[in-house]
Structures are given as C-alpha cells and as structure tokens.
Amino acid sequence: MIGFIKKDLAMIKSNFKFLALLIIVYSFMGVLGKMDISFILPFISVLVMISTFSYDAYNKWDAYSATLPDGRKNSVKAKYLSTILLVLVMTILTTILSFIISYFNKSINTEQILITMCGTIAGTLLVLIFMYPVIYKFGIEKARIGMFVGTFGLIIIGGLIITYFDISFSSKVLEFLENYLIIILVITVISLLYISYKISERIVLKKEF
C-alpha cells in the first residue's frame, strides 16, 4: 500500500507549489484581517487528490494496478489514506498559521480556531466520503457532474427546508450537541469513512478493466 501512496503523492508533487502559494496568500489575507480562508486549503487538497483519478483513468493505470500483488485493495486503501493524510497535514498547517496570525493580530480565539479546524476536516472528508465511491463506480468525468448536481441539489433542498419548515431544536438537544459535538463529529466521520472505503473497495474488487 505504501507504494501506491508514494505513487499518488508523486503525482501531485507538481501541485505542491500551488498549495504553498495558497498558504502564502492565506497568511497575507489573515495578517491583513481581510477574511478567513483556512478551510480552502484542505478543500483544495482533496480536489488535488481527486485529480489523480483523472491521470489514472487517462493512462489506464487501474488495469495495471489490478495486475500487481493485492493491487485492487491497496490502490483503494492508498487513495483514501493519502487523501486523509493530505487533508490532515493541510488543516494542521492552516491551524498553526491561524494561531500565529491571531497572535500577531492580538485576537487569539482558541475555541474558534479549533472548531474551524474540526469543521474543516469533517467538511473536506465528507467530499471524499461521497465522491470516491461514485468515482470508482462511474469514473471521474461522471462523478464530477454528479458532484456538481449533488451539491447544487443539496443547497436547494436545504434552502427549501429552512424556508418552508420551522425547524427548531429543544434546548436539551442544543445543549447535548454543544457538549458532544466534537465526539459526534469524529464518530460520524470515521464511520462514514469506513463505510465509504468498504463500498469503494467492493466496487474495485468486482470491476473489470
């Protein structure tokens, strides 16, 4: 599996300069106090990882990887792990930068930074959770369209629900969420990741190239 991770990371190394530039832009905007774009870096790192599927598809790598020892399983495992790795590294990096920037701006809000960090990890991993099985099943091109339609659909449905239904939680529910939000988030994301990974693995094990 390490071999597949190395291959995926080697494929995105040309994007590292772009990510480094984003970090500089982020730091600059943060120091100026213009806006918080800390979520963008991890999100873009997922998109960068998704681009490796395009290279794989274009060069028919998947058929070859199926000829390698345990190639089908390891290629899926590696895609998930390298994406998670990249998201975590990027999030930790932006979080450290957030602390440094707020120190210089004399406005450290630890709780806010940590909540942003957790939200960013959960949000970006959700992209992976829903996208990867779709990519493995239908290919990268169709999955891209699916992602666009899905996101657009969710926004519309969410908007309609908020507009037409009066959604309110009891104070007990809100209190529970406030106390256990992080734990709920972690358990939910890890469970979804596992389910998503298992679905992808099953698709690839059955796939003919």
Partner: peptide, 20 residues
C-alpha cells in the same frame, strides 16, 4: 496500452514499485 501515469518519472516508479 501504456499504463504509467505520464506525470511520473522512472524514479517515482522505482520508489513506488519497491513497496509493491
């Protein structure tokens, strides 16, 4: 068909394959 992603180098292939 060719099967190595074309943005890789032979060095990258060596580094990956030695774990495969």
């Amino acid at each position: 068909d060719m099967f190595f992603p074309e943005i890789l180098t032979p060095n990258d292939i060596n580094k990956s394959m030695k774990h495969m």
